[in-house]
């Protein structure tokens, strides 16, 4: 049986999730040059927000067609609140501070958010079951389930909406201007603080979409789910060219596919039998990142070389 189509589909799905989360990294970075390492945790809180809607707000037996949009809204609200709150209370006071200070804040925030969920969300000290969309469909040699379709569709819709927003809307253009030159943008009458908040909010919402997709696909969520996903998404954002929203999605897809294919096929290469399998997949993903950056230091779609040491 030829497994390549199925593996490509696996990679594409994983990659879209990375891409959705990576948007948050890349937008914030593009505007304030801040690596928001706590973004993975914002993704995680989005998942718990959605879980709350399903288990504690909606009546039992709500059909998924009704529940999913409401969960998206619930998760989105939680993630946006936390993202914007983090910006307002943790990052904004540090805007004039040394460049590495926000990074340490982000690490602290990341720990704190994980621990808040673990300590205070009922049953969150271990994985919690999440409603699934488990009906499967066979498309030739590929098997996918409803959650996968939800993930792909929402990734496409989100990207299209974001592209439209950034290009056409007034705020979107203000955002581009702020990214290019914050000082000039401010002189032109753009409220840069508002733009930064909007960037955090959009990042938070996209993370929540990814989180709902994650829950529907894997069937459970836990307080540590954000850490690795966040790390991967950050890698994806850099791979695609940090600061570029299309780059983030492309980087996510490339990373997801690379990881899946490495895990699936590296051990079939003669001499590499021992270096294959899922436990080495991250190594190959990072190797790919390093090679890409060596050839294209600004990332796949990055345009300018950030001159910030």
């Amino acid at each position: 049986m030829n497994t390549l189509p199925q593996q490509l589909a696996n990679g594409l799905l994983l990659g879209s999730m990375y891409g959705l989360i990576a948007i948050g990294y890349t937008m914030v970075y593009g505007i304030v040059q801040l690596i928001n390492f706590a973004h993975g945790e914002i993704f995680m809180t989005g998942a718990f927000g959605a879980l709350t809607v399903y288990f504690y707000i909606l009546p039992d037996g709500t059909p998924m067609a009704v529940a999913v949009p409401l969960m998206l809204i619930g998760g989105g609200i939680v993630a946006i609140l936390i993202a914007v709150g983090a910006e307002r209370f943790a990052y904004r006071p540090l805007r004039g501070a040394p460049r590495l200070a926000p990074l340490i804040t982000a690490i602290g925030l990341s720990l704190a958010l994980q621990e808040v969920v673990r300590n205070f969300y009922p049953g969150a000290d271990r994985a919690r079951a999440f409603p699934g969309l488990d009906a499967t469909h066979d498309l030739g040699s590929i098997t996918i389930k409803d959650a996968d379709i939800f993930l792909i569709v929402s990734a496409v819709v989100c990207m299209a909406a974001l592209a439209y927003f950034v290009r056409k809307s007034r705020t979107g253009r203000a955002m581009q201007a702020t990214a290019q030159d914050p000082d000039t943008a401010q002189l032109m009458g753009i409220d840069t603080n508002r733009i930064i908040v909007i960037a955090f909010a959009i990042g938070g919402f996209f993370a929540a979409v990814a989180a709902v997709a994650y829950g529907l696909k894997y069937g459970n969520v836990d307080y540590r789910m954000g850490f690795l996903m966040g790390l991967k998404a950050f890698t994806a954002a850099v791979l695609g060219g940090i600061g570029n929203i299309y780059g983030a999605m492309l980087g996510g897809l490339v990373l997801g596919i690379a990881e899946t294919l490495a895990s699936a096929y590296i051990d079939e290469i003669p001499g590499m039998q021992q270096l294959g399998g899922q436990s080495w997949a991250n190594v190959w993903a990072f190797c790919l990142l390093i090679i890409v950056l060596l050839v294209r230091p600004q990332g796949l779609l990055g345009e300018r070389v950030a001159d910030r040491a």
């Binding site: 970075y29 040059q33 690596i35 790390l231 950050f234 890698t235 850099v238 940090i242 436990s279 080495w280 991250n282 190594v283 990072f286 190797c287 990142l289 390093i290 950056l293 060596l294 230091p297 600004q298 990332g299 070389v305 950030a306 001159d307 910030r308 040491a309």
Partner: peptide
């Protein structure tokens, strides 16, 4: 190979190497 990169690109590459080291010794 990596020090020609600037700023945050270097950060992610070093992060990658750190992970590669850990995964490699674990395997």
């Amino acid at each position: 190979p990596t020090l020609r990169l600037r700023g945050d690109y270097l950060a992610i590459v070093t992060l990658g190497f750190g992970e590669i080291f850990r995964i490699a010794v674990n395997n």
